[in-house]
Simulated scan of single mutants.
Amino acid sequence: MKYTLDILIEAPLEVCAKKFSITEYMNHWHRGLVSIEHLSGIPNELGSKMKLHYKIGGLNLNQIETITHKNLPHELHCSYATKDLDHLQDNFFTATSQNQTKWTSVNECVPLNFNMRIKLWLMPKTFKKQSLQAMKDFKNFVENGTSVAHA
């Protein structure tokens, strides 16, 4: 399943790209993020890997993030791997004015088993909604300093 989302952020390109790429800020816009474990590579650089630990609705979820392309402040592409799904996310940041940034997120979800294939087919809006919520949370964090860390 492939989909593209975008959002307009009331902040300069450099501010958005910096806040997006700093690992310590992730808990402010990744709902349910409990901890981050560095696995390999130079943190926040091309090829680096981190294990992200989430607790969402009583469930413990883990995913491995790998930075697959980095050209900040304009692009940061990552892959997120779980036991059921590979999620490829290409992020593009464009200055629309001096104090506005358009974030475009191109996503591809690749199911790794039959159950996830069925979930993607039956509930594609759920995956898109979750991605859009993260984008809104990032926008709110950048514009207002609002964190979802304790939500």
Rank of each mutant, 00 (worst) to 15 (best):
S40Y: 11
K18C: 00
H28G: 08
P43R: 01
L52G: 09
K51E: 05
L52V: 02
H53F: 03
L46I: 05
T23C: 00
H28W: 04
I36M: 15
S21E: 10
N44M: 14
E37G: 11
V15A: 04
E37W: 10
E37Y: 10
G57A: 05
T66H: 01
I22A: 11
G47C: 00
C16N: 06
E65H: 05
H28E: 06
E45K: 11
K55C: 03
H28V: 08
L59K: 15
V34N: 13
E24L: 12
F20M: 04
T23M: 08
K19H: 02
Q63F: 06
I64S: 07
K55E: 13
A17V: 05
T68L: 10
M50Y: 00
S35A: 15
C16Y: 03
R31C: 02
H53Q: 03
N44V: 12
L33S: 07
N62T: 09
K19P: 01
I36G: 06
H53L: 02
R31F: 12
T68Q: 08
T23N: 06
V15L: 13
I56D: 03
S48K: 01
Y54A: 01
G58Y: 07
G57Q: 13
A17D: 06
G47S: 00
N44R: 13
P43H: 04
G47R: 01
I36W: 07
I64C: 09
K55L: 06
S48R: 01
M26T: 14
W29N: 06
L52Q: 01
M50G: 00
I67S: 14
K55T: 12
K51W: 00
L61H: 09
E65A: 01
K51S: 04
C16G: 03
L46D: 00
I67T: 13
A17H: 08
P43Q: 00
S40K: 05
L33Q: 06
H53S: 09
N60V: 07
K19G: 01
S48N: 04
T66F: 12
I64K: 05
G57D: 14
T66C: 08
M50C: 03
I22Q: 12
S40Q: 13
V34F: 08
E37V: 15
L46C: 02
K49L: 13
E24Q: 13
N62D: 11
S48H: 00
G57N: 08
Y25K: 11
K55Y: 08
I22L: 14
H38S: 13
T68A: 03
H30L: 15
Y54S: 11
E45W: 07
S40G: 09
E37N: 13
L59E: 13
L39C: 15
H28N: 07
A17K: 03
